[in-house]
Amino acid sequence: MTEQVRLTVNGVPRDVEVEPRRLLVQTLREDLGLTGTHVGCDTSQCGACTVHLDGRAVKSCTVLAIQADGHVVTTIEGMAPDGGLHAIQAAFWAKHGLQCGFCTPGMIMSAADLLESNPDPTDDEIRHAIEGNICRCTGYHNIVAAIREAASTLRAGTDVPAAANA
């Protein structure tokens, strides 16, 4: 038994037919081919599957696709639609906020939620905001530095330096 679901994903309306038990992350990755959203722990702990649902960071492994019917989803692929880098992505690059990169899409989506409501967070606030995202490589230090840098870039309202987009 499947149901018709319409999601707006990265600004584009997408119609998919899903079983009610289908998870949002499955629909994004397997039905829509948006594999930038990762499945890490599969138990709602690691945050690799973080996307935005109506502008808020959620773990897409713990949302049913059908619950997102009629709602707006943003994935990592939608952060910089022009093919360049979003300021947060550029800052992760500049500050070496990743090693293997598996957690990075989720980290960036959580950082975007934070900076939307708190443009000038303290390091403590940044760490609290990424509590739901686990990184097994970096020790978090450079991730915090990257988010701090992104906050500064976004506050200044300047474009991402061309070099970072090369």
């Binding site: 709602s44 945050g47 973080t50 649902l53 808020r56 960071a57 959620v58 773990k59 713990t62 949302v63 959580s110 939620d113 934070l114 905001a129 990424i130 509590e131 739901g132 995202n133």
Partner: peptide, 9 residues
């Protein structure tokens, strides 16, 4: 409680 993503939902 939980983390940001859990509290959002």
């Amino acid at each position: 409680i939980g983390d940001v993503q859990v509290r959002n939902r």
